[in-house]
Each structure stands twice: as structure tokens, then as C-alpha cells.
Design a binder for these strands. Structure first.
Lengths: 204, 204, 204, 204
DNA sequence: CGTTAAACGAGACGGTACGTCGAGTCTTTCG
DNA sequence: CGAAAGACTCGACGTACCGTCTCGTTTAACG
């Protein structure tokens, strides 16, 4: 799940015609376009296949379901868009990362991600995959930002890093998915200044 | 939307057989049971009708769609489960309200709510309805808790109440819907002690 | 099979919306048109449904399969086109009936019937249905023609009526389905004069 | 069509690996087995290829279609099973040939042949091929039987030989394909004695 | 004897139709 | 008239074959 299933990891000689790897991208691209146009719910496999000029079997050969296709398409994009900042200060790093993340979530991927979240309770495998890619990647960046701040002596002793990481993600996701309020720079600044820095930084 | 549509506000003398109001609850109950068993996605109108021994038309006469039925079922329950605490202290009120809210979300309603969240980006009316009931109700309670604390002199001057309300909800929802970590008492305590009280309470 | 399956013979009071009988004919008509245009093999249920502006489920509710639909359509027509002649003489009756039957088979129904014949070996139920309607109807007419001739004293004693009936049908079907030679009047005359009358008529 | 298409009659020098002629028989054998098991309709090229452990391309290199493969398989068998009798008498020759033909048709080839007949109306090329092999071969044998009887003076003057040939084939095929009654010896005897001999033999 | 071109098994590819299922609507009968 | 039952249209589902197209490998005949 979550990535195209190639038929067996270490296939001995490779029998038959090999999968055309360029179809993977064409199909992901088609999925992204359709999803941007009509949303996750109204996305149909027929539409994706038609847009990519592919047969439906070609999709089902690589992904088990619509969900599997969509989450793979999203995580693929997420990994390319979560650059790790290094401005030299905790406040700078947080601001830069969170605003980049907010911008990323405000685009079409944000809507797709939200749709996926709706499926998590009924699809444990999807939930695992989602957490192992989408969430972990973002949390690890935050964790490393805090580690570097600690090395520079910017953190309080016993600063609750886990809580800081959690609150940072929660604040953004909550706005995105629940309240619908804008994920803009002023909001990011307020989260950093009012909540995160007081929580972990020395001398606040 | 969101509540049963009774056929015209000021129906003149009221001709024919009146709607059987007890069917509303029977249908909501059936919807809840089916959703608890198979989840939102796999819930079908036929299944709900069959379980309530009702015709599908009877459902559509009251709710416009599957989503409408589900959100009404959920908000109905939410309103009955969000009691407003008054322990006499800010910490006590927060702890009590958030732990009650966490317990509520940990049940079947939590899963249903999460499913609804997945639909919000593509259904503006649903989003409005969801925010006007689910969210507002919960935020208003928090806001009043803060107001009472202020009257007792427990709040700092210029305490960022809006941010506190937002972070409180975000922390719970994020765990529930994204990370899947447990919404237990220790977590609630940590949110209150490490994040909320430092954010707004006097003398921290 | 072979006729629209109405849901249970002696249904107690008849609950729910009844089948719309006019859809039967609309669907049969659509099937006939499509079959005339593209043949049996290329006839698809989608095409029939689209032409009748019906859902596929509506077809499958009445007939179990494409074959079932087609044979019902054909036998329906067969029963309306096998008029029984009564000219007063054996030769006249035979000539009239066989030429009418030949004309009937030369039309689109002939091709459809031939397609059905190809399915008989693998579908025992279909074979039974086909024989009980298509064949029996035609053979009964021939048998009655011979009976009336016997009453008029036109038949030889011990005339092999069964063989006569069989040869009459065989001669036409063989031309239609195997050789493809025309089923015209001269051929019918030769079958009657050279084969059938010598076989059964007195004084030949 | 109808026989394996070897790639061009006068191929200049013959380059590359030559066709493996043993695959022809293996594929025909596989086709026959599959057809015997599931019938013509349900026979798929994939199944034939799998049973013969061949690639589909190997089949399509030799036959243009499923139909082409099947008709070739059948005519191949037909040509080996239509021995020409010479008993010295018309009645004997007819009896021997028709009973051999009946036995042949009663086996699995009979079912396959019937399936092919169902395709004739929509496939003119197939019809031509079928008639030029299956039909002509059988009719020629009958014609030669009548010729030899004529040379022996057994035939009436002006005996309708064409009609006799047609009726002989028709009687058998009609039973086989339409009525499903058994093609046994008594039936053959009755056809010969009651219909064919009276039609053409001297002094009946 | 090495080159080379076609045949071979395998299986992916774009298509088309399948038969089923769910949605939302419509049409009966019964109370 | 309301409500239960269930037929209706529509459209997507995931599967199965079709006939074609690569692949990597094998096998003769040519040079």
C-alpha cells in the first residue's frame, strides 16, 4: 500500500513485459488534476484512467484502491515540499518551517490530505501509512529544529519538546481542517511567539 | 440542512396524516448504529432504512442526503454531551471540560466526526453547519470558562484567549484524528498544565 | 428463464411499487433493434439499456442474461407470426405455411434464432425453452395440417407423419443456417412436391 | 483463415527462427480440450494459451481470431473422419456414410460445430470457410455415392439428386442442433428407407 | 562459428463490457 | 396524506478478455 506495488521485491530474472514506470507518474499526475478539479469524493477511477489515457487495470495493478492511489500521490508531493530550514535561531527556524508547511497545506494537497484524514478511522493500514509518512516527516523536522536550538543553548532545561512538536502541528491542522480560518503568516507568528517559544525557550 | 426539514414552516391547517416525530429518533438511532458498525463510508441509506424498518422516502423527506442525516445525528448527540462545568477554578474547569470532551470524542461519535471532516473541503454548506454546531458549541463553553476565570481575577491582563481556545481544541482533535494517540487524562493534564495555564493564567 | 421473471407466482397482497410492464416491451423492442443493427454477438446490455433509456438493473431484474432476453424477444415474435393456414388441401396448407415460415426466418429473427442455436449445447435450460416454444409451435401447426388432411382422406395409410414434420422443418432450417441458400418460393414448392407429398399423400 | 497462416507463400530466403510446427497441434489440442470443458462461448484465448503453455502472440501469429482457431481445429478433425464408403449398393452406401457422420457429429465436434453455426450470420468469411470445408466435403461424398448408384442403374431418371443430398444433411443436422433427439442407427435407417430411397431410387 | 532475425513464454498495455451496488426519485398499496 | 415497499435512472465499481505491444530468451539458417 501507499506506494506502487511492484510484483515482488527481488524478482529473479524478470519475466514478461516490465511495468512501464512512466505510467506511475502519468497516473499520479492525472489523479492530482482530477482531485484538484472535483475533490476527493467525486474522484473516480474511470476519470483518472481516462485522463491518463490508461486502462483501469493499469491503475489497479499498481494501487489497491482509490485511497491508496491518492495517499501515494500526496506523500510523494509532501516529501518534495518539506525542506528543512536552518536560520541559526529557534524562532527563525520555526517561523520558516511552519510558514512553508502552512503554504503547502493551503494548496490542493491540503484538501486531499483532509479527505484522507476522514478515512483513517476505518482503514488501519491507511492510517499507519499516513502517519509513517505525512506525520513523521513533519515531526522529525520539528524535532531536529529543537535539537539544534538545544545545542545552541536556546532551550530551557526540561523543555517539553514532544508537546511543542504536537502543538505546532495541531495548531496548523486544526485551522486547515476544522475552522477553515486562513493559515497565514500572522497566525504562524502568533503561534510561535505566544505558544511555542514560551513553552520551550530559555528566559521567557 | 442539518436538522429535519419539516414541510413548510407555517403549514396552513395541516392536512392528512401528520409526520410521525418518533421516526426521527428511530432513524437517527439506526444511523448511529450502522455507522458504529461499518463506518461512515460504508453506511448506506438502504441499511439505515432497513434497520429502522422505514422506507427510504421517509428518510429523504426529513434529510436531504446521507451527509445531512449523519451530521444531524452527530450534532444532536454533541449538544447533549457538552455539559458546562463550574468547579470554581480555571484549572478545574479546563480539566473537567476537556476530559469530558475527550471521552466524548473517543467514542463512536469521534469516528463519525472525523469522517465528516473529510467531507468539509468539498461541501461548503456542510462545513458551515459543522462549524456552527460542533465547533461553536465547544468554543463557547471554553470562552465562558475563561470569562469566569477573568471575573475571579485568575487571568493575566491581555491573555490571548482566542489562541487558548484554539489550542485547546486543536490539541485534542489532532490526537484524535491525526496521530491516533490516546486522549486520556494524563494528556489532558499536560495540555492544561504545560500549555493552557501558562498561556493565560496570572503568575505563571 | 425465457419470459420475464415476475417475483414469485402467488405473491400475497403485492407490496411495493409494481414492475412497470411497459418497460418489458420497451426493452424487447430495444433488444430487437440493436440486434438487427449489430447482430447477436455484438449486442451489449449497455446498448440495450441506453436505447430503452433504462438502467441495466431493470434488465437484469427481468431477464437473467443477454441470451434470456434475446430468446424471449424472439419467441414473443414467433408466436405472433406463425398463423395456421386452412386452404382445404394438404398441398395448399403446406405451401402456405412453409412459405410464411420461410419468410419469417429470412428476416432479422432468423439471424437471432441462429445465434441462439449456437448456444444450445452449453445451456440446457435455454435448449429446453427454445424447443418448447420455437420448435413445438411450428411442429404442432404442421401436425394439425396433416391431421386435417387425414380427415379429408388425403393421407396414405401408415404415412410417417413424424418424419414428414421433421423433414419439413429440417429442410428450411438447414438452408437458413447452414448452406445460406435462399428460402424462396421455388424451393418451398420443390420440398412440398418432391419430398413431402410423396412421403405422406395418397396415390403418389 | 481457417488454416494456420504461414507467413507468406514464397518467402524469399527464410530468415530468423522458423515456426515450430509442433505448436500448431499443441494449440489445436488445447483448444479442443478447453472447448470440450467449457464450450465455445466461454473459451478464452488466455485459457488456450495457458493450457498449451504458450504465449497469446503465438496463437495470433497462426490464427486471426478465436473463431479462426476453432474452425480450423474442427475442420482438421472433420477431414480425418469422413471416410467414403463403397458397399456396392446405394442403400448400403447411404446407411454407412450417414451413420458414420452421425457418430462423428454426436461427439464433442458436434457441439463445437453447432457453436460455429451460431456465428455464421455475422461473419461472412467464416461462413464461406465453413461451407467450403465442412459442408462441401460431406456433400461431395453423398454426390459421389449417388453417381456410383447411377452408374449401376439404381437411380430413377431425373432423380432430384441435389434435393436428396440436401435432405440427407438437413435431417441429421436438424436433429443434432435443433431437436436434440438422438442421431442413432434406427433414425438413419428411417431417413434412408422412408425418404432418400423413395426420392431417388428406381422402382420405389 | 559467430551473427542475426524471427519465434517463443510471459505479462503489461489501452479498451470495452460485464454484472452489482448505491444514490436519490417515483409509484404503488395500505392505514 | 403518510409511510413501507420496492421499481426506477443513473453512474461508478472492480474484474475479465480482447488483441497488441514489449521484454528477455531460444533457435535455426546465413554468412
Amino acid at each position: 500500500m501507499a506506494t506502487p506495488v511492484y510484483s515482488g521485491a527481488a524478482r529473479t530474472p524478470q519475466r514478461g513485459r516490465p511495468r512501464d514506470a512512466s505510467r506511475d507518474d502519468a497516473l499520479r499526475q492525472a489523479a492530482l488534476e482530477v482531485m484538484a478539479e472535483v475533490g476527493y469524493r467525486a474522484l473516480t477511477m474511470d476519470a483518472v484512467a481516462a485522463r491518463a489515457r490508461a486502462g483501469k487495470a493499469t491503475i489497479y495493478r499498481r494501487w489497491e484502491s482509490k485511497l491508496d492511489l491518492v495517499i501515494d500521490t500526496c506523500t510523494q508531493l509532501a516529501q518534495r515540499n518539506l525542506a528543512e530550514p536552518d536560520t541559526g535561531s529557534l524562532a527563525g527556524d520555526l517561523r520558516e518551517f511552519l510558514s512553508a508547511f502552512a503554504a503547502f497545506l493551503s494548496g490542493p494537497i491540503g484538501k486531499a490530505a483532509q479527505a484522507l484524514v476522514g478515512e483513517l478511522p476505518h482503514e488501519p493500514e491507511l492510517a499507519t501509512a499516513f502517519r509513517d509518512t505525512f506525520l513523521i516527516a513533519q515531526r522529525d523536522v520539528l524535532r531536529r529544529i529543537l535539537d539544534r536550538a538545544d545545542e545552541r543553548g536556546e532551550l530551557r532545561a526540561n523543555a517539553p519538546r514532544g508537546m511543542a512538536v504536537e502543538i505546532a502541528g495541531a495548531a496548523l491542522i486544526y485551522r486547515l481542517m476544522l475552522t477553515g480560518d486562513p493559515l497565514d503568516l500572522p497566525f504562524v507568528d502568533r503561534v510561535v511567539d505566544q505558544v511555542l517559544l514560551p513553552l520551550v525557550a530559555e528566559g521567557q
